[in-house]
Design a protein around this nucleic acid. Structure first.
Length: 341
DNA sequence: AACCCCATCAACCGCCACAGA
DNA sequence: TTCTGTGGCGGTTGATGGGGT
């Protein structure tokens, strides 16, 4: 039970209308600040901290209350993926929203939804581990090691995609990931944001990106040499392609789908990083665009844009459904190439 | 109707950074 | 340089209300 009064006679708990009025009138007359002496001068039996919190989070002019919009939610997720639990910094980019409100919304809505989607809300990486990927492949009649050996039977580009996926999925230690993703000389940290936007634009799970993005340098060694040699591409080619994949650069020319979605995303998002100078051109040898186009063209599921989906409903369920569908759809797409084998 | 469970969110708490003495 | 006061931040708590049984 929350205490109504502390031992020093100060009141605790929910604020009354009368207390709110006293606080508002005092601040209108004297301005905010001097929180320690404010309650005494304003005739309030509250501690200064409580007054400050009440003003900042509830009474301050310009506070936007009510449900978070889809755009706000999207912004929060993007910012959180970059800033982590820096709620005040996130709130600074969302006019009218307080850090407390965003924090609560994250913990009660977004965090839960990400977990349901199989995404770690702390790292924003998929919680699917290597064994689970193998399991998915097995259930689809595939074995990852077989894939790597059957390179002559499948599209070599797909093979590389699988290889990269396999190597990146070995990363499970968050600290290791963070250190390497910051220090990796080949993958600029800022690209993270571009990548998020690119993946958002394509409705691809940016978590896939994040995990790949955090690829440890040692894992690069795990790319089979024979694979690289037989296809005529060097490890550097693959790394360049991976970078293009991560930055979303390889998606830029996918007709209709990417262009349309990119426009929607840039229009919606209030967070528009300008890191294009860090985008590394995709390899001329290895064309992920064709790989992805190929993958997408194999999907029987029609492409649904976020706006189309959201416009059909505004409930939490719809949002959740949209997000999880997005993840499932793309996961499914990613492994649908088995029927060509 | 009564009870329980759970989600939500306002409010509190403890800690930290920083400025000024 | 150290101490102290203050503001700010992030994590946590608990009152409340709604839904299910």
């Amino acid at each position: 039970m929350r205490k109504i009064a502390s031992e020093n006679g100060l009141k605790k708990g929910p604020w009354t209308e009368d207390e709110d009025l006293k606080l508002i009138r005092y601040i209108q007359a004297h301005g905010p600040g001097q929180w320690r002496i404010l309650p005494k001068n304003a005739g309030l039996q509250r501690c200064g901290k409580s007054c400050r919190l009440r003003w900042i989070n509830y009474l301050r002019p310009g506070i936007k209350r009510g449900r978070f919009s889809f755009e706000e939610e999207e912004t929060i997720i993007q910012l959180h993926s970059v800033m982590g639990n820096k709620w005040s910094a996130i709130a600074a980019r969302l006019p009218g929203r307080t850090d407390n409100e965003i924090k609560n919304y994250w913990n009660t809505h977004i965090r839960k939804r990400l977990l349901q989607m199989g995404i770690d809300p702390v790292t924003h990486a998929p919680r699917v581990n290597f064994l689970e990927i193998s399991s998915i492949l097995n259930s689809a009649g595939l074995n990852l090691s077989n894939i790597l050996n059957l390179q002559t039977l499948v599209n070599p580009q797909l093979l590389k995609l699988a290889t990269i996926l396999a190597s990146s999925s070995k990363i499970e230690n968050r600290e290791l990931c963070l250190n390497n993703h910051i220090n990796h000389p080949l993958i600029p940290y800022q690209n993270h944001q571009n990548s998020n936007l690119a993946f958002a634009a394509l409705n691809l799970p940016n978590t896939l990106l994040n995990q790949s993005h955090l690829m440890h340098e040692n894992d690069i060694q795990n790319i089979p040499d024979n694979l690289v040699n037989m296809n005529g591409d060097t490890t550097q080619d693959i790394l360049m392609c991976e970078r293009a994949f991560l930055t979303g650069d390889c998606f830029n020319n996918i007709p209709n789908y990417s262009n349309q979605s990119t426009a929607q995303t840039s229009e919606k998002s209030s967070f528009q990083p300008s890191y294009t100078e860090n985008i590394i051109p995709s390899s001329p040898k290895f064309n992920y665009e064709s790989v992805l186009s190929s993958l997408m063209s194999r999907s029987p599921t029609p492409v649904i844009s976020p706006s189309e989906f959201i416009n059909n409903g505004s409930t939490e369920d719809v949002r959740e459904s949209y997000c999880s569908s997005m993840f499932k759809l793309e996961t499914q797409k990613s492994f649908e190439f088995n029927d060509s084998m």
